[in-house]
Protein backbone atom coordinates (compact mmCIF):
# COMPACT_ATOMS: atom_id res chain seq x y z
CA UNK A 1 0.00 0.00 0.00
CA UNK A 2 1.17 3.48 -0.82
CA UNK A 3 1.89 5.68 2.20
CA UNK A 4 0.48 9.19 2.20
CA UNK A 5 1.32 12.48 3.87
CA UNK A 6 -0.58 15.72 3.54
CA UNK A 7 1.47 18.57 5.06
CA UNK A 8 -0.32 21.85 5.82
CA UNK A 9 2.62 24.21 5.31
CA UNK A 10 5.65 24.50 3.06
CA UNK A 11 7.90 23.89 6.11
CA UNK A 12 6.10 20.62 6.85
CA UNK A 13 6.24 19.69 3.19
CA UNK A 14 9.98 20.29 3.04
CA UNK A 15 10.47 18.12 6.12
CA UNK A 16 8.32 15.35 4.62
CA UNK A 17 10.17 15.57 1.33
CA UNK A 18 13.54 15.34 3.09
CA UNK A 19 12.39 12.41 5.20
CA UNK A 20 11.09 10.48 2.17
CA UNK A 21 13.22 11.37 -0.85
CA UNK A 22 11.89 8.32 -2.79
CA UNK A 23 8.25 9.30 -2.41
CA UNK A 24 6.33 10.98 -5.14
CA UNK A 25 5.34 14.60 -4.70
CA UNK A 26 1.73 15.27 -5.61
CA UNK A 27 0.79 18.83 -6.52
CA UNK A 28 -2.23 18.96 -8.87
CA UNK A 29 -1.84 15.29 -9.76
CA UNK A 30 -2.37 15.75 -13.48
CA UNK A 31 0.92 14.01 -14.34
CA UNK A 32 0.60 11.47 -11.57
CA UNK A 33 -2.81 10.31 -12.79
CA UNK A 34 -1.69 10.02 -16.41
CA UNK A 35 1.14 7.77 -15.32
CA UNK A 36 -0.88 5.70 -12.87
CA UNK A 37 -1.54 2.97 -15.44
CA UNK A 38 2.00 2.80 -16.74
CA UNK A 39 4.37 3.19 -13.83
CA UNK A 40 4.92 1.20 -10.64
CA UNK A 41 3.15 2.54 -7.59
CA UNK A 42 5.39 4.90 -5.62
CA UNK A 43 6.17 3.80 -2.03
CA UNK A 44 4.52 6.97 -0.76
CA UNK A 45 3.01 10.27 -1.73
CA UNK A 46 3.59 13.73 -0.26
CA UNK A 47 0.47 15.70 -1.19
CA UNK A 48 1.12 19.44 -1.38
CA UNK A 49 -2.50 20.40 -2.11
CA UNK A 50 -3.14 21.28 1.55
CA UNK A 51 -0.20 23.75 1.85
CA UNK A 52 -1.88 27.15 2.01
CA UNK A 53 1.45 28.97 1.68
CA UNK A 54 2.13 27.19 -1.61
CA UNK A 55 -0.75 29.01 -3.26
CA UNK A 56 -1.27 32.55 -4.40
CA UNK A 57 0.15 35.36 -6.45
CA UNK A 58 1.88 38.39 -4.93
CA UNK A 59 2.90 41.50 -6.82
CA UNK A 60 5.90 43.55 -5.82
CA UNK A 61 7.07 46.69 -7.68
CA UNK A 62 9.24 44.69 -10.10
CA UNK A 63 8.02 41.12 -10.01
CA UNK A 64 5.13 38.75 -9.73
CA UNK A 65 5.71 35.93 -7.29
CA UNK A 66 3.55 32.91 -8.06
CA UNK A 67 3.56 30.26 -5.35
CA UNK A 68 4.44 26.90 -6.90
CA UNK A 69 1.20 25.17 -5.92
CA UNK A 70 -0.99 27.76 -7.63
CA UNK A 71 -3.24 26.06 -10.17
CA UNK A 72 -3.45 27.39 -13.71
CA UNK A 73 -7.05 28.53 -13.40
CA UNK A 74 -6.04 30.92 -10.63
CA UNK A 75 -3.22 32.23 -12.78
CA UNK A 76 -5.55 32.64 -15.76
CA UNK A 77 -8.01 34.64 -13.64
CA UNK A 78 -5.50 36.84 -11.84
CA UNK A 79 -5.70 40.51 -12.94
CA UNK A 80 -1.97 41.21 -12.51
CA UNK A 81 -0.99 38.19 -14.58
CA UNK A 82 -3.43 39.25 -17.28
CA UNK A 83 -2.11 42.79 -17.25
CA UNK A 84 1.62 42.09 -17.19
CA UNK A 85 2.12 38.53 -18.42
CA UNK A 86 -0.54 37.88 -21.06
CA UNK A 87 1.58 35.18 -22.69
CA UNK A 88 1.55 33.18 -19.46
CA UNK A 89 -2.24 33.38 -19.47
CA UNK A 90 -2.33 32.34 -23.12
CA UNK A 91 -0.07 29.36 -22.43
CA UNK A 92 -2.06 28.38 -19.35
CA UNK A 93 -5.26 28.35 -21.37
CA UNK A 94 -3.74 25.71 -23.62
CA UNK A 95 -3.03 23.30 -20.78
CA UNK A 96 -5.51 20.45 -21.10
CA UNK A 97 -9.04 21.66 -20.50
CA UNK A 98 -10.57 23.64 -17.66
CA UNK A 99 -10.66 20.62 -15.36
CA UNK A 100 -6.93 20.12 -15.80
CA UNK A 101 -6.28 23.84 -15.41
CA UNK A 102 -8.16 23.75 -12.11
CA UNK A 103 -5.83 21.08 -10.73
CA UNK A 104 -2.53 21.37 -12.58
CA UNK A 105 -0.03 23.76 -10.97
CA UNK A 106 2.79 25.92 -12.28
CA UNK A 107 5.26 24.17 -9.99
CA UNK A 108 4.13 20.76 -11.22
CA UNK A 109 4.65 21.81 -14.84
CA UNK A 110 8.17 22.96 -13.97
CA UNK A 111 9.17 19.88 -11.98
CA UNK A 112 7.80 17.42 -14.53
CA UNK A 113 9.97 19.37 -16.96
CA UNK A 114 8.58 17.75 -20.06
CA UNK A 115 10.04 19.14 -23.27
CA UNK A 116 6.42 19.86 -24.26
CA UNK A 117 5.41 21.52 -20.95
CA UNK A 118 3.13 24.31 -22.10
CA UNK A 119 4.26 27.07 -19.74
CA UNK A 120 8.00 26.43 -19.90
CA UNK A 121 8.97 28.39 -23.05
CA UNK A 122 7.05 31.34 -21.59
CA UNK A 123 9.02 31.16 -18.34
CA UNK A 124 12.22 31.17 -20.39
CA UNK A 125 11.16 34.18 -22.45
CA UNK A 126 10.09 36.02 -19.28
CA UNK A 127 13.41 35.20 -17.57
CA UNK A 128 11.69 33.67 -14.55
CA UNK A 129 13.56 32.49 -11.46
CA UNK A 130 12.70 29.74 -9.02
CA UNK A 131 12.70 30.00 -5.26
CA UNK A 132 13.72 26.54 -4.01
CA UNK A 133 13.27 25.32 -0.43
CA UNK A 134 14.99 22.50 1.41
CA UNK A 135 16.01 21.78 5.01
CA UNK A 136 19.28 23.44 4.07
CA UNK A 137 17.51 26.72 3.39
CA UNK A 138 16.39 28.64 0.33
CA UNK A 139 18.12 29.37 -2.94
CA UNK A 140 17.16 31.25 -6.10
CA UNK A 141 17.90 29.56 -9.44
CA UNK A 142 17.33 31.28 -12.80
CA UNK A 143 14.83 29.14 -14.70
CA UNK A 144 16.99 29.03 -17.81
CA UNK A 145 19.61 27.13 -15.77
CA UNK A 146 17.10 24.77 -14.17
CA UNK A 147 16.42 22.20 -16.89
CA UNK A 148 19.41 19.96 -17.48
CA UNK A 149 18.12 17.35 -19.94
CA UNK A 150 15.15 15.19 -20.85
CA UNK A 151 12.89 15.53 -17.80
CA UNK A 152 15.86 16.24 -15.53
CA UNK A 153 16.39 19.39 -13.46
CA UNK A 154 18.66 20.89 -10.84
CA UNK A 155 16.07 20.22 -8.13
CA UNK A 156 17.78 18.31 -5.29
CA UNK A 157 16.13 15.19 -3.85
CA UNK A 158 15.26 17.08 -0.68
CA UNK A 159 14.06 20.22 -2.45
CA UNK A 160 10.69 21.67 -3.40
CA UNK A 161 9.87 24.67 -5.53
CA UNK A 162 8.38 27.33 -3.29
CA UNK A 163 7.61 29.94 -5.92
CA UNK A 164 8.21 31.23 -9.40
CA UNK A 165 9.45 34.82 -9.56
CA UNK A 166 8.80 36.64 -12.80
CA UNK A 167 10.16 40.14 -13.51
CA UNK A 168 7.50 42.48 -14.87
CA UNK A 169 8.22 43.42 -18.46
CA UNK A 170 8.05 47.12 -19.34
CA UNK A 171 5.94 48.67 -22.07
CA UNK A 172 8.75 48.51 -24.63
CA UNK A 173 8.93 44.73 -24.36
CA UNK A 174 6.79 42.88 -26.87
CA UNK A 175 5.57 39.54 -25.65
CA UNK A 176 4.60 36.79 -28.07
CA UNK A 177 3.63 33.19 -27.65
CA UNK A 178 2.28 30.47 -29.84
CA UNK A 179 1.66 26.78 -29.47
CA UNK A 180 1.34 24.43 -32.42
CA UNK A 181 -0.30 21.26 -31.23
CA UNK A 182 -1.82 18.16 -32.72
CA UNK A 183 -5.24 19.83 -32.77
CA UNK A 184 -6.96 23.02 -31.65
CA UNK A 185 -7.43 22.09 -28.00
CA UNK A 186 -6.36 19.52 -25.44
CA UNK A 187 -3.28 18.66 -27.41
CA UNK A 188 0.39 17.98 -26.92
CA UNK A 189 2.67 20.47 -28.58
CA UNK A 190 4.59 19.87 -31.77
CA UNK A 191 6.30 23.24 -31.50
CA UNK A 192 6.01 26.05 -28.97
CA UNK A 193 7.67 29.40 -29.04
CA UNK A 194 7.62 32.40 -26.72
CA UNK A 195 9.38 35.69 -27.10
CA UNK A 196 10.13 38.85 -25.17
CA UNK A 197 11.50 41.43 -27.56
CA UNK A 198 12.62 44.78 -26.21
CA UNK A 199 12.36 47.52 -28.82
CA UNK A 200 13.64 51.06 -28.38
CA UNK A 201 13.79 53.74 -31.06
CA UNK A 202 12.89 51.26 -33.76
CA UNK A 203 15.64 48.82 -32.83
CA UNK A 204 15.59 45.55 -30.94
CA UNK A 205 17.76 46.09 -27.86
CA UNK A 206 17.50 42.50 -26.73
CA UNK A 207 15.32 39.47 -27.35
CA UNK A 208 14.67 36.32 -25.38
CA UNK A 209 13.28 33.32 -27.25
CA UNK A 210 11.97 30.26 -25.40
CA UNK A 211 11.20 27.11 -27.37
CA UNK A 212 9.43 23.87 -26.52
CA UNK A 213 9.16 20.48 -28.23
CA UNK A 214 12.22 21.08 -30.39
CA UNK A 215 14.83 19.64 -28.03
CA UNK A 216 15.09 17.24 -25.10
CA UNK A 217 14.24 20.13 -22.77
CA UNK A 218 12.68 23.56 -23.08
CA UNK A 219 15.46 25.79 -24.42
CA UNK A 220 16.46 29.38 -25.03
CA UNK A 221 17.40 30.05 -28.64
CA UNK A 222 20.50 32.04 -27.80
CA UNK A 223 21.97 32.33 -31.29
CA UNK A 224 18.64 33.55 -32.62
CA UNK A 225 18.48 36.06 -29.75
CA UNK A 226 21.93 37.39 -30.73
CA UNK A 227 20.85 37.60 -34.36
CA UNK A 228 17.94 39.81 -33.35
CA UNK A 229 19.79 42.12 -30.98
CA UNK A 230 20.70 45.65 -32.08
CA UNK A 231 18.80 45.35 -35.35
CA UNK A 232 15.54 46.73 -36.65
CA UNK A 233 12.55 44.38 -36.31
CA UNK A 234 12.23 43.95 -40.06
CA UNK A 235 12.22 41.18 -42.65
CA UNK A 236 16.00 41.02 -42.89
CA UNK A 237 16.33 40.58 -39.15
CA UNK A 238 13.58 37.99 -39.18
CA UNK A 239 15.50 36.03 -41.79
CA UNK A 240 18.69 36.30 -39.75
CA UNK A 241 16.81 34.99 -36.72
CA UNK A 242 15.44 32.07 -38.73
CA UNK A 243 18.86 31.22 -40.10
CA UNK A 244 20.48 31.42 -36.68
CA UNK A 245 17.81 29.14 -35.25
CA UNK A 246 18.50 26.52 -37.91
CA UNK A 247 22.07 26.40 -36.65
CA UNK A 248 21.18 25.85 -33.03
CA UNK A 249 18.30 23.39 -32.84
CA UNK A 250 18.00 19.86 -34.18
CA UNK A 251 14.45 18.76 -33.51
CA UNK A 252 13.53 15.09 -33.81
CA UNK A 253 10.85 13.18 -35.66
CA UNK A 254 8.52 11.29 -33.36
CA UNK A 255 4.98 10.02 -33.06
CA UNK A 256 3.54 13.54 -33.17
CA UNK A 257 5.53 15.35 -35.82
CA UNK A 258 8.62 15.49 -38.01
CA UNK A 259 12.03 17.12 -37.63
CA UNK A 260 11.81 19.17 -40.83
CA UNK A 261 8.38 20.49 -39.91
CA UNK A 262 9.40 21.38 -36.37
CA UNK A 263 12.42 23.36 -37.55
CA UNK A 264 10.50 25.17 -40.27
CA UNK A 265 7.65 26.12 -37.96
CA UNK A 266 9.95 27.15 -35.12
CA UNK A 267 11.75 29.43 -37.58
CA UNK A 268 8.47 30.82 -38.90
CA UNK A 269 7.20 31.56 -35.40
CA UNK A 270 10.31 33.44 -34.28
CA UNK A 271 10.40 35.34 -37.57
CA UNK A 272 6.75 36.28 -37.11
CA UNK A 273 7.41 37.45 -33.54
CA UNK A 274 10.19 39.72 -34.80
CA UNK A 275 7.97 41.16 -37.52
CA UNK A 276 5.07 41.64 -35.13
CA UNK A 277 7.37 43.49 -32.72
CA UNK A 278 8.17 45.86 -35.56
CA UNK A 279 4.55 46.36 -36.41
CA UNK A 280 3.34 47.11 -32.90
Amino acid sequence: MTAYLRPATLAEAVAARAAHPDWMVLAGGTDLMVNANHRPEPPGIVDLWGCADLRGIVRSPDTLRIAAGTPWLEIIRHPDVNKHLPILVAAAREIGAMQIQARGTIGGNIVTSSPVGDSLPVLLALDASLDLASPRGRRIVPYHEFCTGYRTTRLAVDELIAAVIIPLPDAATHLSWRKVGTRAAQSISKVMAAAAIHVEDGRIVWARFGLGAVAARPIRAVAAEHAAARRAPDAATARAVGDALAGEITPISDIRSAADYRLEVAQNLLMRFVLNAGRA
Binding site: V34, T182, R183, A184, A185, Q186, S187, I188, I255, R256
Partner: peptide
Protein backbone atom coordinates in the same frame (compact mmCIF):
# COMPACT_ATOMS: atom_id res chain seq x y z
CA UNK B 1 -2.93 5.94 -37.11
CA UNK B 2 0.82 5.36 -37.11
CA UNK B 3 1.86 1.76 -37.73
CA UNK B 4 5.41 0.89 -36.80
CA UNK B 5 6.59 -2.65 -37.53
CA UNK B 6 2.92 -3.67 -37.61
CA UNK B 7 2.15 -2.18 -34.22
CA UNK B 8 -0.10 0.83 -33.63
CA UNK B 9 2.55 3.23 -32.37
CA UNK B 10 0.10 5.85 -31.11
CA UNK B 11 -2.28 3.61 -29.19
CA UNK B 12 -3.46 6.16 -26.66
CA UNK B 13 -5.77 9.15 -26.67
CA UNK B 14 -2.85 11.52 -26.16
CA UNK B 15 -1.42 10.76 -29.57
CA UNK B 16 -4.27 9.08 -31.45
CA UNK B 17 -5.97 12.37 -32.21
CA UNK B 18 -9.68 12.80 -32.87
CA UNK B 19 -11.43 16.17 -33.21
CA UNK B 20 -12.62 18.15 -30.22
CA UNK B 21 -15.33 20.80 -30.41
CA UNK B 22 -12.57 23.38 -30.90
CA UNK B 23 -11.59 21.65 -34.15
Amino acid sequence: IVYKDGRVANANMTNCIVPTFAD
